[in-house]
């Protein structure tokens, strides 16, 4: 059984349909990449999986280890092991980064019936994990993402992922805004977190990231559907030929009727 199963998922905001039937199976230990033009619904898919209540699921199901997620609140999904690295990480002024993360971890541990980590144990663990993305200790006690540069925010997301040890990690454009060195660091961090028990969904616009984080599968999304799936080479082909090759106007998501381009 796949770790994540998304079946015929439809979602909308208000009366605007955004996801129009997504099917996706990601097995434990696998990394899948999702690509696709701006506005095609990639972040929406990520948000819906994480349970953002701005989106209404109108059809379909989402299973994590066979267990349905859609009825669960975002925090309950997090405790089940869903982690989303945000495309735009949010600033929380006055709330210390470490305090935030410890609160999160302990909340998850409580749900799982585990003992909470005290400040000392947590600090030690956090320090260890921060090495993974080379996040300087100075960031630990600053307010969550406040005044962080774009790249620092993205590193902080991966640091949080390292601490929270999710079952399913969804990385939404974690590579955008990173310089080359940071890209390597972040990708290194992500690779360090690959494990046979964990599944990852990596949303990106750039093939380059996939040189570092080598995916098992690549999916192309357009207009709220997955219109093409393949191996790594699909990403290379896309890079070369652009979305037009798939019958899509480059940079626009709305050109095709899903059925045609779909295999």
């Amino acid at each position: 059984m796949a770790l994540l199963s998304v079946r015929n998922l439809h979602a909308r905001v208000g009366d605007k349909d955004i996801l129009k039937g997504i099917d996706l199976e990601v097995g434990a230990g696998e990394v899948h990449a999702i690509m696709g033009p701006n506005g095609s619904g990639k972040s929406t898919l990520a948000s819906v999986l994480a349970g953002r209540d701005a989106y209404e699921v109108t059809k379909g199901e989402v299973l994590l280890d066979g267990k349905s997620l859609l009825e669960l609140a975002p925090e309950a999904r997090a405790a089940e092991g869903v982690f989303l690295a945000f495309q735009y990480p949010v600033e929380i002024p006055g709330v210390g980064n470490l305090h935030f993360l410890r609160t999160a971890l302990n909340a998850q541990r409580r749900v799982k019936g585990l003992e909470e980590l005290d400040a000392m144990d947590f600090l030690q663990m956090a320090k260890e994990k921060s090495k993974l993305v080379q996040l300087d200790a100075a960031f630990m006690n600053r307010s969550v993402n406040e005044g962080f540069s774009g790249g620092e925010k993205k590193r902080n997301e991966i640091f949080q992922m390292a601490v929270l040890e999710p079952r399913l990690a969804i990385l939404d454009e974690t590579d955008s805004g990173l310089d080359i060195d940071a890209l390597r660091t972040v990708a290194g961090g992500v690779n360090g977190l690959r494990s046979p028990q964990r599944a990852m969904v990596v949303i990106t616009h750039y093939q380059r990231l996939l040189d570092y984080i080598v995916p098992d599968k690549v999916h192309v999304m357009a207009s709220g559907r997955i219109i093409r799936s393949g191996g790594r080479e699909l990403a290379l082909e896309l890079e070369e030929k652009g979305y037009g090759w798939l019958g899509l106007q480059d940079g626009k998501g709305a050109a095709t009727k899903g059925g045609e381009a779909r295999r």
Binding site: E75, V95, T103, L105, V111, L164
Partner: peptide, 20 residues
């Protein structure tokens, strides 16, 4: 949503943000 995605309940999230 950011807080809740990390596992923090809505109530705790509000209180955390306000305290911040």
């Amino acid at each position: 949503f950011y807080c809740r995605q990390r596992g923090i309940s809505q109530e705790d999230a509000v209180s955390m943000i306000v305290n911040g």
